[in-house]
Design a protein around this nucleic acid. Sequence first.
RNA 1: GCGGACGUGGUGAAAUUGGUAUACACGCCAGACUUAGGAUCUGGUGCCUCACGGCGUGAAGGUUCAAGUCCUUUCGUCCGCACCA
Length: 813
Amino acid sequence: MQYNPKEIEKKWQNYWNINDINEPSNDKSKKKKYILSMFPYPSGRIHMGHVRNYSIGDAIARHARTQGFNVLHPIGWDSFGMPAENAAIKHKLHPKKWTYENIDYMRGELESLGLSFSKKREFATSDSLYSKFEQEFIIKMYEEGLLYEKSQSVNWCETCHTVLANEQVVEGCCWRCDQEVEQRDMPGYYIRITKYAQELLDDLKTLEKGWPKQVLTMQENWIGRSEGLEFSFALSEESDKKLGQNFNTFSVFTTRPDTIYGVTYAALAPEHEIVKYLIAHDLLDEDKKEALKKMQNMSERDRGIVEKEGIDLGITVIHPLTGKEIPVWSANFVLAGYGGGAVMSVPAHDERDYAFATKYDLALKEVITHDSSDLAEEAFTGQGVLINSESFDGISNEDAKAKIIAYFEENALGKRVVNYKLRDWGISRQRYWGAPIPFVHCTDCGIVPEKKENLPITLPDDVEITGEGNPLDTHPTWKKCQCPKCGKDATRETDTMDTFVQSSWYFLRYVSENRTDVAFEKQDVDYWMNVDQYVGGIEHAILHLLYARFFTKALRDLGYISVDEPFANLLTQGMVLKDGSKMSKSKGNTIDPDAIIKEFGADTARLFILFAAPPQKELEWNDSAVMGSFKFIKRFSERAEHVNVVDTIPILEHSSLSKNEQLARKKVYEALKKSAEVYEGNFAFNTLVAACMEALNALNDQDNRDIYTEGYYILTNVLEPIIPHICWELADKFFARTNFKKLEVLEEVFVESSLTLAVSINGKRRDEIEVARDTSKEEILSLAREQCAKWIEDKQIIKEIYVPNKLINIVVK
RNA sequence: GCGGACGUGGUGAAAUUGGUAUACACGCCAGACUUAGGAUCUGGUGCCUCACGGCGUGAAGGUUCAAGUCCUUUCGUCCGCACCA
């Protein structure tokens, strides 16, 4: 059969569409599979990363369908976000128009790949209906204390008048206008993800089987749990007076309570309230104030690069155990947002404190024995026994940790605490193209959530995007409203939500079809969740996947669903490379999927992408290998001329077949067997395709039409998830598609009448022997000795090993 | 610095998990055929050697009858986090 991809691909795509082939059934008694590839941002055109992502997901979904599962395999659009605003500035296009036109175009592109999405559930996160439910969740979170407003230091660009996310700050400057980014206290809404830190950490264990280890480790590190002692330093009497008795104490956190006797100073973050008080009340010299302000203005990232720096604050605290007076400094390496923004400093046993103390000539006090290192050179951070630590002397430092914490607790001086690096999730963005945050500011009532019947709060269309300021804030009327509580004139919140909020629950929206009254139906969630297989790029390892896990748990606790974890199994695909580096417009090394589809067809693109490398690995684009994939499909199509039209698999008497005929059947059934392994295991489609190629090669080395027919009956089934168009065409033409079902592996074809065994001498392969299947071990060994006499003569046989069906190893001396 | 992953032909990669290393492709070489095509078909292709044979999975050791696979050390590449006290 002449291979004409253009014709057959169009034909079958139409067929699938018209007949709703890919829509899931409502019959909830059926076993389900929820297969999801991460939804795309509608940037304009699909790229090879999309092709890979959706080819993998589609193969898994199609396979599940032929195995008889009720399959949900939806698609949608992550359609809020900054690129739409950038396009608006650049091309004078309204973000909405730009976004929805892109969606229409990209929908067509995905269709041309023959992806089996259930399209009836498609939506874009910028749809007002989607915002409505999201705003409901946000209000509910606020009511339950999971969302709050606070002022915090953020990255601010003065030229663009907006907050920037950390990843939008490039070398300390705004990624768009190059303005130097400053730190500024800004009010914003925060979601209390830290409340779930422990559960997010604990539940990683339940994902060990289904998620890549790498991702689990990254999340674990990101959550960053550490245990230690929290206690307070009391200010000395004199310092307390200096600070107007406004503080009395400040709290510090340490994971090294065993070194507490080695504390020689304390250090505060430049943003610490005490530092702010000292500046505000003119209790420091001008130059010190200037230096502190400079430290405050530096971004966290830059502080990591510059040298350690500090200011003596001229106040002292009392050591809680020794009662000695110790100085307090402010240091640029102390983080404001962690452990109370203050630390106890033990320069003898902490590298950072050591560097700081040597720079400013502060005292060192050794409290752990050590013989290897020299304190004149560096801090000693290893294990040892306590010294200079009063009653704790002589205890190993590991034991001392618990004992000292216990002492603090017994004497009400401090307590054991658990700290996390994870911080609350700031969701405010001073952007137009995002979901409005549904709160109202009332001069009397403060922050008030919008009434449910007024949702969704939608964006005004009549705005001009200039890149300066927030169009919602400058709009003449939009923010004017009445307070939902007291009815007085009030203003709307003009910040919009981080787009990660939308992607944190989109997989839940798919489970119910087009509901306008609720975001999703609980019983649909119960049936479809969890996602059985999630497919996406590793770049989302932390942010999206952590937020989505959190959101699922939060919605559970808010009573919407009863799911603990959203994604049971995760497959992280590798990048698509060209000439060894990531495809990008600036490098000029992109390959346009549309061009490939036009030239060779979608099946070729899909086959190449799944064959060239295992899905988890990086994939190097190779034009001639693409050609090779095309040739395989062409050959597969043309050699179908040897196939008979049947509506059931031919029955064959295996033992009466020739050797080549038997081999062909064996290869075909090996491919079928491999298929089951691949979809249940590591998704090594490359090896599955190789098995199919071997099967086709073996079929071609014989000319029995029945065996060809059987072979194609199976191969069009096995290859359907990968190259669906040609498989539907062939299966339709020859088998009335009766083969698109779970096929049984015929074990008899693997049983061979004779065995080929390798013969090794001292582990080195020397020869091979062919024996009948029922030959005894003794016979086999004697045959092996005979055949390899050359290697054995003059030597003594020490041992003979026979591994059934594999090899013989004769050990000689 | 900490954490993770990975090193196999000219290239992309396989190897039933300790049992014949390099399957399947790409590329290359030779030949056949021809409606000269991005054809198609046949054969060959790890390295050294005329050969017998030897050597080969980043390197060096080790365990084992047997190691790409397990252990130790080491080198290199990539990724993530990065002053979290």
